[in-house]
Simulated scan of single mutants.
Amino acid sequence: MHHPAEHHNLGKGIACGMGAGALWGLVFLAPELIRSFTPLEMACGRYVLYGLFAAAMVAPRWRVLSHTVPLRTWWTLNWLSFAGNTAYYVLLSSAVKNGGITTTTLVIGFLPVLVTLVGSRDKDALPLRQLLPSITLCVAGAICIGWQAMHTHSVARAPFFGLLCAVAALGSWTLYAVGNSRALVRQRHFSAHDWNLLTGLATGAQNLALLPLALLLDPTTHGLAQWSNFALVSAGVALLASIAGNALWNRMNQLLPLTLVGQMILFETLFSLCYGFIWEQRMPTGTQAVAFGCVVFSVLLCVRAHRKPVAQATNASTA
């Protein structure tokens, strides 16, 4: 399915995509801030709080809202929550802990390519040849990041396992990005905010069930200060990335076609790299600067490719 042209708003959609990317980029730092905890504990901490925050926000309207959510929609929300939240964050945290921020960012950087390729098959989507320059620059940027990562990775963790986790996270989130975009087209009676809160309820329930297993599988004894830090980081990521970031992303999905949605994921890559440089207290290398340039121009070319058809469709509808 494809978003009708009259619903497109490039300016607002891109702004929402940038905001979501800035907030989502923070999740790459979280595993470094609470390294003594397992990836499953990190996921449970973040998403149980996401569910609690969502429950508190939806409670005043729950009696009315609950009647608009059939069983089939709950099934959709649950598999999207698992693919895009629970499984993705466990895999991402494992990738960062074992392979580092930069290597993980490289692999996740291929998300726009996969999502754009899938979106190009939608009805009325732009032909792939018009998106090829943007996709080429996206791939070039990811390769530059990967080249730099291979020559600067000095922490002896488990780089191959980290790479496998990153690739699995890539697949998991691609399923979510495509499925969520198409679900929002079908579920237009839900606002982006309400869809995010319902997703939060599903995600929170999943991770509440997983919490005892997460605690059982962690052999480490944590002190009060570590648990306090864990709670603070989990709450921050839940509020900023899950509540605010997801709401912006869902709104963007309602405004942009899937072929452009894919390119918006690049903002998460850009911001996560920036946060990584701040964390490592260094400036980007020449290769990483080239990667930044490729990513920025990739988005600009994709926006340019979409602007003319949308303008033509708008003019036709008002004629």
Rank of each mutant, 00 (worst) to 15 (best):
M1R: 13
H2G: 15
H3P: 01
P4A: 12
G13Y: 01
A15I: 09
C16E: 10
L26I: 06
F28G: 00
F37W: 10
E41H: 03
M57Q: 06
A59M: 11
L71F: 12
W79L: 06
Y88S: 08
S93Q: 13
T103G: 11
L117P: 02
G119F: 08
S120R: 01
K123Y: 13
A125Y: 05
L131E: 01
T136S: 12
C138G: 12
G141R: 08
G141I: 12
C144N: 11
M150D: 09
S154N: 14
V155K: 10
A156C: 09
R157E: 14
F161L: 15
A169M: 11
L170G: 01
W173G: 00
L175K: 04
Y176H: 06
H193T: 11
D194T: 15
N196F: 01
N196T: 15
A202D: 05
P212H: 12
A214Y: 03
A214N: 00
L215F: 13
D218F: 05
H222V: 03
W227F: 04
W227Y: 11
V233M: 11
S234N: 01
S234M: 05
V237S: 03
L239N: 04
A247C: 12
R251E: 14
M252C: 14
N253F: 09
N253M: 15
Q254F: 06
L255Y: 12
P257K: 05
P257T: 07
L260C: 03
G262K: 03
M264A: 02
L270V: 10
L273K: 05
C274S: 08
F277L: 14
F277V: 04
F277W: 15
P284T: 15
Q288A: 09
F292R: 08
V299N: 09
R307P: 05
V310R: 04
V310D: 05
A313H: 03
T318W: 10
A319I: 08
A319K: 06
